[in-house]
Every structure is written in structure tokens, then in C-alpha cells.
């Protein structure tokens, strides 16, 4: 059975972001698997609202960084300013020093600024003028980006995409959800009125529980078969890396935990695969994009 804390969180979130339950679950799974999340979609479909909502529900300290093309790394990390009183430089932490960082429109910034954030994600610390500053724990980044075909974007290179555990798309709401949205009150006000459903301590416990979910040999066989297929079938420009395989397993475990299971099933792997593998796979030809490709991958590999 689903843990009450998780079901409560999902229920609260679904009240605000309407008709997007599976995306909410994926976001939660990503956070429980201790990974960073990339949301890719058009402006205005609720990316920022979702990030805001998660911060609030999980009781995390929240910072938002709006990425622009004239942004510098210091705008993210922080700067050292000379303090006349003490006669020395003092570090002023930038917006990245928060438990949950929303990096909005991350592909609007130049690669230099992007890499400052992505380094922080990888290292859990930042280095400014020779001094190393630890980032808070837990530390999540939810980055949003516009589809790369939009003007004025610097697409993230594969190596940096790989640092995001999942990439999800929100998509337009369906007709009923949109009507409810139009009729209801402001989302911003609703979020402000929310009470956190989890504490930081609860979150840590859940993360530990997720990493303890059982993965049987048969399931590891299945994950390996999937990864193997991406490497040998010739349908993909490059196969999934071992890091991607680990990410797939971690995300599947978190998904199983959200579904209230103590063991991972192939269904869990299949549920998270499009989000985990979609941004890591490139088709060999020009046909089909990431998520659809993941679907064909699922249907090509038999359960062992």
C-alpha cells in the first residue's frame, strides 16, 4: 500500500496541477531517487508552478533562478565582496544555495552559465575564488527548458543532459482540466495557502526506503536486456551508459515505492523508462524522438 505521506503529497499536488498525476508521480519519484529533474515544455503550461508546488509540499527552502543569455556564473554561485569593516573579502552566496533550486529556462543562458549550475549539481558544492562552499542537503535542481527548436536557445550537450535523472514533458491540460483551471482561483494563492506534507526528515526516510526496494535478479536481467538492446540493435546512435542503467534502476525503485510495493516490477521500469532514457537516447536515423523511441525500445525487448 502506498505510504500515507506519499499519497497525501500526490493528492495535494493534483489539486493544484490538474490532470497531470503521472507527471507529478514522476517528479516525486525523481526526488525520491535523489536525482535532478528537467522539465521540457512550452512556456505557460505550468512548469514553474509545479516546481514551486513541490518545494512547498516537501517543506524545502526554495530559490528561483531565471536564466538569461547575458547571465554570468557569479549570478548563480554568488560573489565575494570586499568588506570594509573586516578588511577582507566576504562571500555572498548566490541563489544556488537553496534546498530546491528552480533553474528556469536553463537553455536560454550561455554554456558558461549553464555549466556553473550543472557543476553544482554534480559536486553538491561550489567553488568561488578558491574557496569551496558546500550546498545545502538535500539539494535538488528542477530545471525547465523550452523546446530546442525555439529561437534564442543554447541546447544542453548530451554530457550535461545526462546529469538529470529524468526529463519530463507536461503537455497541454485536457479540456476538463483546463475548464477547472479557468474557473478556479489563482494557483499562486493556492500554493501560498498549502501546508507542507513532508518534513526534511520524512523526505530522507523516504529516500532511504526507495533505495532499499528489492530488485530481483530477473528484474536486473530485464534492465540489462533493455540497455543491451540500445547498444546492439543499431536503432540508436549510441546506447545507454552504465550511469543511465543505474539511474533507471534508482528511478524504478522510487516508482515502486510510490506504488506501494516492496519489490520492483517490470511495469515500474517501463513506467519510468521514457523519462529516464528519453533524453539520453538518440535515434540512429532521423525518425522519431526520445519518448517515442523509448516506447519502441520497451516493445522490442521481451521480459526475460
Amino acid at each position: 500500500m502506498t505510504l500515507p505521506a506519499i499519497s497525501r503529497t500526490i493528492e495535494q499536488a493534483s489539486r493544484i496541477i490538474l490532470g497531470k498525476q503521472s507527471q507529478i508521480r514522476l517528479c516525486l519519484a525523481c526526488l525520491l531517487a535523489q536525482g535532478h529533474l528537467l522539465i521540457e515544455d512550452l512556456p505557460g503550461v505550468g512548469k514553474t508552478t509545479l516546481a514551486h508546488l513541490l518545494a512547498k509540499l516537501l517543506g524545502l527552502q526554495f530559490q528561483r533562478i531565471q536564466f538569461t543569455s547575458d547571465m554570468l556564473p557569479a549570478d548563480i554561485i554568488g560573489v565575494s565582496v570586499f568588506d570594509r569593516e573586516s578588511g577582507s573579502f566576504r562571500f555572498h552566496p548566490g541563489p544556488v544555495f537553496a534546498q530546491l533550486v528552480l533553474a528556469d529556462e536553463v537553455n536560454r543562458a550561455t554554456p558558461k552559465a549553464q555549466s556553473a549550475l550543472l557543476e553544482a549539481m554534480e559536486e553538491q558544492q561550489v567553488t568561488a575564488e578558491g574557496a569551496t562552499h558546500a550546498l545545502p542537503d538535500p539539494f535538488f535542481v528542477i530545471a525547465t527548458q523550452n523546446p530546442s527548436y525555439q529561437v534564442g536557445t543554447f541546447p544542453l550537450p548530451e554530457s550535461q543532459l545526462d546529469r538529470f535523472l529524468m526529463r519530463i514533458e507536461l503537455g497541454y491540460p485536457d479540456r476538463n482540466a483546463e475548464r477547472a483551471l479557468l474557473q478556479g482561483e489563482s494557483r499562486r494563492d493556492m500554493i501560498a495557502a498549502l501546508e507542507p506534507t513532508l518534513t526534511v526528515g520524512d523526505l530522507r526516510d523516504l529516500q532511504r526506503a526507495a533505495s532499499a526496494v528489492h530488485a530481483a535478479d530477473a528484474l536486473l536481467d530485464y534492465i540489462q536486456a533493455l540497455v543491451e538492446h540500445t547498444r546492439t540493435s543499431g536503432l540508436f546512435a549510441s546506447g545507454l551508459s552504465p550511469r543511465a542503467a543505474l539511474a533507471l534502476l534508482a528511478a524504478s525503485r522510487a516508482w515502486a515505492l510510490i506504488a506501494g510495493r516492496d519489490a520492483v516490477l517490470p511495469e515500474d521500469v517501463q513506467a519510468v523508462l521514457p523519462s529516464v532514457a528519453g533524453h539520453r537516447l538518440k535515434p540512429a536515423g532521423e525518425s522519431g524522438g526520445g519518448t517515442r523511441l523509448a516506447r519502441t525500445l520497451i516493445e522490442a525487448v521481451a521480459l526475460p
Binding site: L265, E267, Q270, E299, A300, A302, L303
Partner: peptide, 9 residues
């Protein structure tokens, strides 16, 4: 059962 189909599905 399809070859790739999980038991619950």
C-alpha cells in the same frame, strides 16, 4: 501476453 508485457499490465 506480449513478450514485453509485465504481469500486472
Amino acid at each position: 501476453r506480449k513478450a514485453w508485457e509485465g504481469p500486472l499490465d
